[in-house]
Amino acid sequence: MSETNEREVLLSVKDVDISFGEGKNVFKAVQDANFDIYKGETFALVGESGSGKTTIGRAILRINELSKGEITFEGKRISGKLSKAEDREVIRNIQMIFQDPAASLNERATIEYCISEGLYNFHLYKDENDRLQKVDKALEEVGLLPEHKSRYPHEFSGGQRQRVGIARALIMEPKLVVADEPISALDVSIRAQVLNLMNKLKNEKSLTYLFIAHDLSVVRFIADRIAVIHLGRIVEIAETEELFAHPMHPYTISLLSAVPMPDPIIEKQREAIVYADATEEKTGPDYAMREITPGHFVYCTPQQVAGYAKIAE
């Protein structure tokens, strides 16, 4: 695991707080978020609804403002005030895939326009011919055909629409793709196709993904590392198999125990563990992300470290 230290950090989230509202009504959606995403990995952010996972994703895309901390991309700050040129650079390098492909495509625009929109906005093509070629190539890469260009989103199935959503992100040649629950709205069989496609594109184009999801079985298949977020706080970060083998934070343990397994013998015996402190935050001035074993971080006090380290043995 020592190689982790040598890997190139693509995106770094440092001491980030994000709050909504003002004065008395201020609501802290995310507190003290700290993590790095390495180049070429799939980093998953897992949590329940309202935990702040999407808020972090949107903050990286500069949609939500930070109230504290900073986010850097390739060593350069991308949070807070940026010049117009820098802002455009960020948008080009970081693209997003949304949950609901039906809601994220313009119903009145053809697929050709949907996919070219980014090219138009950034003038990323030499001439009409070049643009059409790029659209054809993007369609081909996601397993659609050039003749689909002239169709409208409603003519496609859910899985195909999600492919269009991926194609329009890819055509910008991004370095980081934020995928916010990209398969939650899809059926089991279609889900597998989209996951395979995302993996294929990752290898071919050396993409990096921030994969935001709530389904742990999917995350286990696709992610290299996982961060678990609860009530706006990241409580645990570890490599995927390490997290499943040695979950440490009580919330992670409860979350993993709640996932139903597709096996009747196991499932009939399984007892979900209730997270006793679900509503009250386990936090205080002594709490911070601490490394328990190499690459495995837990949000805890210095006193708790030894106890967590025992779990790993």
Binding site: F244, A245, H246, P247, D263, I265
Partner: peptide, 19 residues
């Protein structure tokens, strides 16, 4: 061997093991 496969992945840790 669906059961063996799923059991193997859960006994390595995670949900079932913890429970």
């Amino acid at each position: 061997n669906l059961h063996e496969k799923i059991a193997r992945m859960t006994s390595k840790g995670g949900a079932f093991h913890v429970g």
